[in-house]
Design a protein around this nucleic acid. Structure first.
Lengths: 233, 233
DNA sequence: TTAAAACAATGTTTTACAGCACAAAAATAC
DNA sequence: GTATTTTTGTGCTGTAAAACATTGTTTTAA
């Protein structure tokens, strides 16, 4: 039962540039074993503790990777945008999932069984090197994040998050509004602060003229100043 | 100019189990291009911002990977023990080093040029998979660490660090003393707290009977209680 | 079309922890 | 073996940010 819009969708090996290194046989094998799945807004994709079975390639929507910590407090580890892949780390580390994944808006993703990925890696070194590079980059981001989240003050952490959101998701057609509409709570959970503090600090930024806010729409007005706050704070 | 003790040392491909997957030719190629280097106590091995050229395999001693953050405050990201490899992440991510590395005691390490590593990976898939697994594991540790360092209280963070130190470096011949002798400052920098707080909390643990301390020697007396503190705090 | 959640905003209280300052002890240098 | 630096230990103070409380606002559901 394939809908019209899905018919128009490119197969996974053409949709996502990482598979360009595959041979024709490998591409066919990949396609045959990949399925497209849709997720409603705020639907959980996988949970901490589960056994990783699929790698996901996000086609549309937005996904958060998070961890529930002390006292049910949630920490968003990273945010996924279309064409990003996720859900494969735990399999390679031979562990159950250490994180959970949930959509933050209606989303769809290609699901590839991890055995299929592993098999292709075993025959294709370039794909292996792609994963090495991808994991190495993520690890660098995490290393930097450890320092930011522990050492920067609330203002600095929020400023950094806003810049990341803009860099990651881009802006809307007006060229200003960040193409991401996180709730204040998610913004707080990403930036390691309480919701109250995210709200408070956001409105401080507005009165200082560095950003403009309208509901969940955020515009960066003075990027230089925001970077300054991110660096010093 | 090879000393007697170095003569006795196994070549890198025999010393470190990760190279077992190499062919004879690859092993020879690796050996020919590897050099052993000694580092004094508190000697810097590489610095944030430098271009990664070598992968290190620690032969003896202990090394800290750290990042200098806000106001010169240092955060130790991870601790290296013999036979661990380090210094390769940035090369794979095609970045300059994001962290610095320094010995915390007199150490020696095999240095392998990253081009050599990359070349062997290109011809040997099993080695590629080893790096994928290694990076995936480190990423999982970092993900968990983000939550611990941001959400746990001082007591919980220090308790977790002590357990990690024991698990990572083991105990001395008495079967109790942790085989690691970090300064209070390094312990604090690993656990994201001030030196004062590390000292204070450490002596609190002593009066509670969960650990015993004598200079830089630390013994875990009540592991169950320490785990409890780590979990709740 | 009203009820009920969920979300946003703001003010108040509490507390965990950083940031000193200073003293003692230990390691290192001279 | 004395001097000097580094490390360790302790107490006090200020403050950033959590926790709590209250009210207003928007979205969802019934």
């Amino acid at each position: 039962m394939v809908t019209y819009s899905e018919k128009q969708l490119k197969p996974i090996d053409e949709f996502c540039p990482m598979w360009e290194v595959l041979t024709q046989e490998e591409r066919f094998y990949l396609r045959e074993n990949t399925k497209l799945q849709h997720f409603r807004k705020n639907e959980v994709i996988y949970c901490e503790g589960e056994t990783p079975k699929f790698m996901m390639c996000l086609v549309t929507g937005k996904v958060k990777i998070y961890k529930d910590g002390v006292g049910g407090r949630s920490q968003i580890i990273r945010l996924i945008k279309p064409v990003d892949i996720f859900g494969y780390r735990a399999f390679f580390a031979k562990e159950p999932y250490l994180t959970s994944a949930s959509t933050i808006e209606s989303s769809s993703a290609y699901l590839v069984p991890m055995q299929v990925v592993e098999q292709i890696i075993q025959s294709n070194n370039k794909l292996a090197l792609y994963f090495i590079q991808s994991l190495a980059s993520d690890l660098g981001v995490d290393d930097a994040r450890i320092v930011s989240l522990t050492q920067k003050h609330v203002r600095g952490r929020l400023a950094e998050s806003l810049i990341m959101l803009r860099d990651n998701y881009g802006v809307e057609s007006d060229g200003k509004t960040i193409n991401s509409h996180l709730s204040r709570e998610d913004l707080a959970n990403y930036s390691n602060m309480t919701t109250s503090n995210a709200i408070r600090t956001l409105s401080n930024f507005v009165s200082e003229g560095v950003i403009a806010v309208s509901g969940r729409n955020i515009q960066i007005l003075d990027e230089e100043q925001l970077r300054k706050i991110s660096k010093i704070g």
